[in-house]
Design a protein around this nucleic acid. Structure first.
Length: 435
DNA sequence: TCTGGGGTCCTAGGACCC
DNA sequence: TCTGGGGTCCTAGGACCC
């Protein structure tokens, strides 16, 4: 807590959906839903047009389809989202190095660290940042809260959404927070809300009634202590610009439950390779290997094993994960399988115990073409065609793929259908748009 | 066709050590 | 021969976040 409103929370509006509308002119002003598009998918982001029809994040895609059948359902292009995020975070870091990203679309910024920041001129100061963000991202907007603490800055950014700014006047924090639902406080999720509701607590004001000791008894030491303070808008957390990665993991929910162990082991190989790749890219390694399994009935378990030393080897991760899977009953089928590693070290094990003249670590068999399957043309994906230029996949099936030829910089474009194996049609990567 | 994917943090019990 | 403690590491599960 400080005496001036100088902590900013920024939240890009309907981020994934907005990037899609920017890059797909025919979808502007229309409902767009980004997320899992398979039978077991859930919504990651809905555009405001889709929210008007009751579509929400974390809703099952099947339900979103029922509510909003004419929406565009897109699988998501994370390279494009990462690129837009990079531009936004870059602009924020021109204000100060004290930028704490919470995700691709959210960050805290400590404005007080900038010598030119004057709390009296906060509206203009933030306004010029927002204008730059919209210009540099070619159309994205954000909502911002500025307050004396992280808690109230985050609460503030919700107030004038979308494309809004709310400055919480210093001194008014507790009064603004009091009438809100307890769930407005980050950290109060469905389980905590239900426990509080049974005690007759629904608003933040009501949360202030029990003593700290009572809250600790009800919610445990950490949540109890922090909720007692946060409910009174007491928050002295600082903006932390860098955090060490604590774990790296990959998981997949299958369209159909899998009970075939040899197939599950092939999937573990693939996942271990992905995890190892990401470890190597970041120059880190880890000691504790964890598998996550979700059974047909949604019962979920983790099993972990800790190695003598850290590794970034796909073969070691895979062998460890397979030995953990061997202890699990998969006879009724797994709905989800995941492989992760934690206990990370920012160095790679120098092979003290291995003979460098001996063979390299055993390679995992590369995947065969049949294991990889055919190229999947998923809705929303960027493609390019030798004759028609750049566009995106509108839909596919029955050996055909339909493409709309338009980009960020064109008017809404025409639609053409091709054979799925048309050699003139190709994947387009990472927001590459022909000039 | 119920319920994604990638994370963080917390709790709690048992092993083990001093 | 009757019940110490504290600290660390490991495992598992759960709540929560976007």
């Amino acid at each position: 807590m400080r005496s001036t409103a100088s902590i900013m929370h920024l939240d890009l509006d309907a981020f994934f959906a907005s990037v899609e509308q920017r890059d797909k002119p025919s979808l502007r002003g229309k409902p767009v839903i980004v997320g899992g598009i398979g039978p077991r998918g859930v919504v990651a982001t809905a555009s405001y047009e889709a929210r008007l029809r009751g579509v929400r994040s974390a809703m099952r895609t099947a339900e979103a389809r029922a509510r909003c059948p004419h929406a565009a359902f897109l699988g998501g292009r994370f390279d494009a989202y990462r690129e837009a995020s990079r531009i936004v975070m870059g602009r924020l870091r021109e204000v100060t190095e004290l930028v704490e990203p919470l995700s691709l679309d959210e960050a805290f910024v400590d404005l007080a660290d900038n010598p030119d920041f004057d709390p009296e001129g906060v509206v203009e100061f933030v306004g010029s940042i927002l204008a730059d963000i919209t210009e540099r991202t070619e159309g994205l907007t954000a909502s911002v809260g500025v307050a004396s603490s992280k808690l109230m800055a985050k609460i503030g950014s919700e107030i004038n959404k979308p494309n809004g700014l709310f400055v919480v006047p210093p001194g008014a924090e507790a009064d603004i927070l009091g009438p809100m639902q307890a769930t407005a406080i980050p950290g109060v999720g469905p389980a905590t809300a239900e426990r509080l509701r049974r005690l007759g607590i629904q608003t933040v004001e009501e949360l202030r009634v029990p003593s700290e000791a009572e809250l600790i008894r009800i919610l445990g030491n950490s949540s109890g202590r922090s909720l007692w303070r946060l409910s009174r808008a007491l928050d002295d957390r600082s903006v932390v610009p860098f955090r060490e990665t604590k774990s790296v993991s990959v998981e997949d929910t299958f369209e159909n439950d899998i009970s075939d162990r040899s197939y599950l082991e092939i999937i573990i190989d693939r996942m271990a390779r992905k995890v190892a790749e990401r470890l190597k890219k970041n120059g880190i390694s880890g000691r504790t290997v964890t598998i996550k399994i979700r059974h047909h009935d949604f019962e979920t378990h983790t099993r972990s094993a800790t190695l003598i030393g850290p590794t970034d080897s796909a073969a070691t991760l895979s062998a460890t994960a397979k030995s953990l899977l061997a202890q699990a009953d998969v006879s009724n089928g797994l709905r989800l399988l995941g492989v992760g590693v934690s206990g990370l070290a920012d160095w790679v094990q120098d092979d003290l115990f291995t003979d460098h003249d001996a063979a390299e670590e055993p390679e995992i068999e590369p995947e065969s073409a049949t294991q990889r399957g055919p190229v999947r043309w998923y809705p929303g994906m960027d493609v390019t065609h030798a004759d028609h230029g750049d566009g995106w996949v509108w839909g596919s099936g029955l050996g055909q793929v339909t493409v709309r030829f338009e980009t960020r910089h064109t008017p809404p474009g025409p639609v053409h259908t091709f054979r799925a194996d048309d050699p003139a049609l190709d994947v387009r990567h990472a927001g590459t748009v022909k000039p």
